[in-house]
Amino acid sequence: MAKGTTAKTSKKTKTAKVQPRPVHKLLIELLMLNAGRISEVIEREGQEIFGQANLLSNEEITDYSLEFLELFASLLHAGERIDRRGPEYRALREFFNGFSKRIRARGASLDEFVRYIQFLQRVFLENLDASEDVSFEDARAVIILLGSLFNDIILDIFHIYLEEKERTIQAQQEELRQTSAPVTEIWDGVLTLPIIGTLDSSRAMTVMERLLGRIERDRAKAVVMDVTGVSSIDTQVSHHLVQMIRAISLMGAEPILTGIRPDIARSLTSLNIDLGRVTTRSTLAEGLKEAFRRLGVHVGAAEAAG
């Protein structure tokens, strides 16, 4: 008897089970019912995160909050499944991209942005918690949707952030390359190239390309390459040096190598690098004197007037 009652009750429960509502409709409903409150909470938290650090003005925070709610609502209106390629999602992504760029330009870190996104997610969940007619299935679906949506946005922004960082690092490296081996015309037909740091393949190619271009442009007769600032020399570096010297000669200019420190000289001899046919001088000054001598230029102290 008891068994039969239990079976009946269970059947009743099954038939009474409410089908979960489409999650986007549920969220739209939530937004419409609590728009004022959600907007107010978002603004308040925005002011706490960004306002205190003077990253955004109150007007900006209000504008951003409203724009976010509008874009989020249009994404929900677009359908139950979020289309990551759809214009609504792309608009939301662009919004957050612009937003993160602006706050980072004003000194915010990515942590603050992530905190804000997590907070937005929490606002919806808290409002969901407050509404009584939301079933467990509904809540679960909302959590899954919000989690996946906001995580994707965080990941997107993170990738954009990394790409920007990468571009900045590359630009800085390029700048460093340009400034660490400046080709200077120190006299008519005399170029100097002080090399500082390590001469790897990529840098050697850049330096060589610029140097050969300058030889042609300035019609250089002599090039003084100073390696005082080269920290260490290995097979690869010495190979690049020899190639540079050879290329200078092929262009018809005279290469003069200066500033070979004793430890570098030791490395060169132990690496069996033959610089026998290359003109070398101990210092850049000596190298310049040699270049001037070859050009027939005499540099000396002027005789005292009177």
Binding site: M208, E209, L212, G213, I215, E216, Q243, M244, R246, A247, L250, M251, G252
Partner: peptide, 11 residues
């Protein structure tokens, strides 16, 4: 000799 040619030949 063009810079590009010198560059390639030196290598």
């Amino acid at each position: 000799m063009r810079p590009v040619a010198a560059f390639a030949l030196a290598r």
